[in-house]
Amino acid sequence: MLRDITLGQYYQTESVIHRLDPRVKLLGTILFFISLFCFSNPAGYAIALLFLAAVIITTHVPFSYMIKGMKTIVVLIIITVVINLFMTQGDVVVEFWKFKITKQGIVMAVQIFFRIAMLIVGSSIMTLTTTPNHLTDGMERGLRFLKVIKVPVHEIAMMMSIALRFIPILLEETDKIMKAQLARGADLESGNIFKRIKAMVPILVPLFISSFRRANDLASAMEARCYRGGEGRTKMKPLKYTSRDAVAYLVLFAYMVVSISVGRLDALKIM
C-alpha cells in the first residue's frame, strides 16, 4: 500500500523532458500552476489539459505509473469537490432534503477537480523526470539570489535532496514496523478515527527512533566524505543551459500567452 506513493520518485527514461535543465522545469511547473488559477472559462482548462497531455507523452513515463501516486490524494479531491458542489450559492438545479446543488456549484466543483488533478500531475511530472539531486541543484542555482538576504539556500537544497532520497527507505521501514506490530496483534484497521490514530503510536515511535539513528549515521558518512557545506564545493553535473532549454522556454511562453488570453475570454464563459 505504502509503496504506491510516487510523489517525489524519479522515473528513468531518456526523454527530452528528462534532459531539460531543472530550472526550466521548476519555472515551468510554477508558471503552469499560475496559469491554472487564471482561467475563467473551460477553454483555458482544455488548453492546459492538452498541454499537460503533450508533456506527459513526451516524458515516456507510463501514465498509469503517474496515476498511482494520485490514489492517496483521491480522498482530498473528493472532499474538496463535494464541499464546493453543495456549498456554493446560486441558481438551484437539484434539491433534496437539506441539500441544494446549484449551477454555480457544479461549475465550481468541476473546475476545482481539474485544478487539483492537474496540479498534482503537473508537479509529479517534475519529480518523475528530474533526479532529486538535479531538482535541488536547480533550486540552489535558481534561488541563489536569496543568499544575499542570508537564506541558507545550499543547506535547504541538501536537506530536501536527502529527505527525498530517504522517502522510499522510510516507507519500507514503516511497512516492516507495521507488519511487525500486526504480527504481535496490533489492531490498525478497526475502531473510530481516534482509536486508529492511537493505534499508529506504536508504529511512529520506532520509526522516529530509527530515523534519528539513520540521520546520525548519515551525518558521519557525509563528514567522512569531507562534506563541509556549500563553500568550495564543485559540481559533478553543473547546470548549463542548452538550445533545448531555450526551445522549452519558448514553448512555455507560448503556452502561457495562449492559455491565459483564451482562458480569460468572457465570450467563452458558461456562466
Partner: peptide, 9 residues
C-alpha cells in the same frame, strides 16, 4: 549501506 548513500543515483 542504506545510511551512507547520499545521492539517489
Amino acid at each position: 549501506p542504506d545510511n551512507q548513500i547520499i545521492a539517489p543515483v
